[in-house]
Amino acid sequence: MNEGTIIKGIGGFYYVQTETEVVQCRARGIFRETNITPLVGDRVRIRISEEDGNGYIEEIFERESVLLRPPVANVTQAVVVSSIKNPELNTWLLDRMLVMAEEQELEVLVCINKCELDRDGAKQMESIYTGAGYNTVLTSVKEQEGLAKLKNFMEDHISVFAGPSGVGKSSLLNSINSNYDLEIGKISLKTSRGKHTTRHVELLKLNNNAYVLDSPGFSSLNLDFIEDETQLRFYFKDIEKYNDQCKFSSCIHVNEPGCAVKDAVESNIISRERYKNYLMMIEEIKNRKRRY
Rank of each mutant, 00 (worst) to 15 (best):
E3P: 00
I6Q: 09
I7P: 05
G9Y: 02
F13Q: 08
Y15G: 02
A27E: 15
R32F: 03
E33T: 09
T37Q: 07
T37R: 06
R43A: 06
R45V: 03
E50P: 00
E51P: 02
G53D: 11
G53R: 08
Y56F: 13
P70C: 09
P71H: 10
T76K: 02
T91N: 13
L94V: 00
A101P: 05
Q104F: 00
L106S: 08
L109I: 15
L109E: 07
V110G: 06
D120M: 11
G121N: 03
Q124T: 10
A132E: 06
Y134W: 13
T139P: 02
V141G: 08
K142W: 04
Q144T: 09
L147N: 14
A148Q: 11
K149E: 06
K151H: 06
F153I: 02
D156P: 01
S165K: 10
S170N: 15
I184Q: 13
K190Y: 06
R193N: 07
K195F: 04
K195I: 07
T197D: 03
R199T: 15
H200K: 01
L204I: 06
P216F: 15
Q231I: 06
L232D: 00
F236M: 13
K237G: 03
D238A: 08
I239N: 07
Q245E: 11
Q245T: 12
H253T: 01
K262E: 08
S267H: 04
R272F: 01
K276C: 06
N277I: 07
L279G: 04
E283V: 03
